[in-house]
Simulated scan of single mutants.
Amino acid sequence: MIITDTHTHLYSEAFEEDRDEMIQRALEAGVGRFFVPAIDSSYTEGMLKLEKDYPEHVFLMAGLHPTHVKEDYKDELKHVEEMLSRHKFYAVGEIGMDLYWDKSYMESQQDAFRHQIRLAKNHKLPIVIHCREAFDEVFDILEEEKGEDLFGIFHCFTGNREQADRAISYNMKLGIGGVVTFKNGRIDRFLDQVDIHNIVLETDAPYLAPVPYRGKRNESSYIINVLQKLSDIYGLVPEEIAEVTTRNAGDVFGT
């Protein structure tokens, strides 16, 4: 059984003390592939080192995270362009909009999101979307950019059934992680109505640890708890969930 974690920040400072041990725990749990999203240029060196250390298991993305869109965002976008031109990446992400903490950079976030979608199209890559308190704004831009060359993953999907259907209509898979195990997560109420071929697994480690680890540091091995929850929701054995979601991830990332 090969499990794919489509979204894990393995380079995070939260893993500074035990990164290799944490990755080994995940490998032993059956997680064979880790897709690693970018945040900004300060993490590029750490990401490249991970890929060098675990070449058969780590797959990198390039991108500028919406919460890191600040005054210098155009310089950061140039860095993304440069990296895409000289290194192999499997997606442009995580990109999108986040209006939870700060709305003062909303227009810059919109500009960065559009720009990176077009970069992804130019490089024939999927996008991985971060969306927090910004479904309408994200959907507006996806509507502008929709087409056969727009596809990817709606990371950490926390919307309702209508928003799930709309995301899928833009050729997006839904990234399902620890939130599906939360009592107040809500997505477990309708997820069985979403075709499993539109689902991929993720942890977003070190964030959003699933029950029974909620509130603690998340890590990729905890994807087993997400897998078990989806097994309950869909009425399928964990091995089948792992097989289908890994295949779905391969369809997105071209692996």
Rank of each mutant, 00 (worst) to 15 (best):
E81P: 07
D98S: 04
A249C: 08
V226M: 05
H9L: 10
D5H: 10
K74T: 12
A134L: 07
Y90H: 11
E51L: 09
V252A: 05
E137L: 01
G63M: 02
H115A: 09
E56G: 03
K121L: 04
L99F: 15
G235H: 06
A14Y: 01
G235Y: 06
Y213L: 06
A38I: 03
S231Y: 14
Y100F: 15
R214G: 02
D188I: 02
E145K: 05
V92R: 02
P210C: 05
A167K: 08
P212N: 04
L125F: 01
G30A: 07
R214S: 00
V128P: 02
K78S: 14
E202R: 09
M97P: 00
Y207L: 06
F35L: 12
F113H: 01
G152T: 11
K88P: 04
G215C: 04
L10A: 04
V138T: 15
D5I: 09
I168P: 01
E94M: 03
T67I: 09
K74P: 02
A205S: 15
P55A: 14
K49Y: 06
K70I: 10
E21W: 07
K70E: 09
T6K: 02
P37T: 00
G159C: 12
K52D: 10
R161W: 09
M47I: 04
V244L: 09
V252R: 05
Q110K: 13
Q24I: 05
K124C: 10
L99T: 09
G250F: 13
D53Y: 07
H155I: 06
K78R: 15
N122V: 06
K78Y: 10
H115K: 10
Q228H: 08
K146L: 07
I224C: 02
E21L: 11
Y73W: 12
N171Y: 10
S108K: 13
I23C: 04
I176Q: 00
E21T: 12
I39F: 10
D75F: 00
D72K: 12
H87M: 04
V211L: 03
T181A: 06
V194R: 01
D53W: 13
E82T: 15
H79M: 11
T245R: 03
K121C: 12
E144K: 14
H7Y: 08
F151T: 08
T8C: 15
Y234A: 07
I2F: 10
D102C: 07
N122A: 12
H123Q: 14
P238R: 01
I129A: 02
A242I: 13
E162H: 00
I168C: 03
I39P: 02
F89N: 01
A134M: 10
A205H: 05
A134P: 05
E81A: 14
H68W: 12
P238Q: 02
D5P: 03
R189H: 15
K49C: 06
K78L: 08
Y213M: 00
G159M: 04
L236R: 02
L84N: 07
E76M: 11
N198T: 05
A249R: 00
F139Y: 03
D75W: 03
I168N: 00
D251P: 01
K229L: 08
L77I: 15
E107I: 08
D72E: 11
G159Y: 08
V69C: 00
N122F: 12
A242C: 09
L27W: 05
H130E: 08
D111H: 13
L27A: 14
K49L: 08
F59Y: 12
R189W: 05
L48W: 04
G147V: 06
R25V: 03
E219Y: 13
G63H: 01
E148L: 15
T44P: 05
H123G: 12
D251T: 11
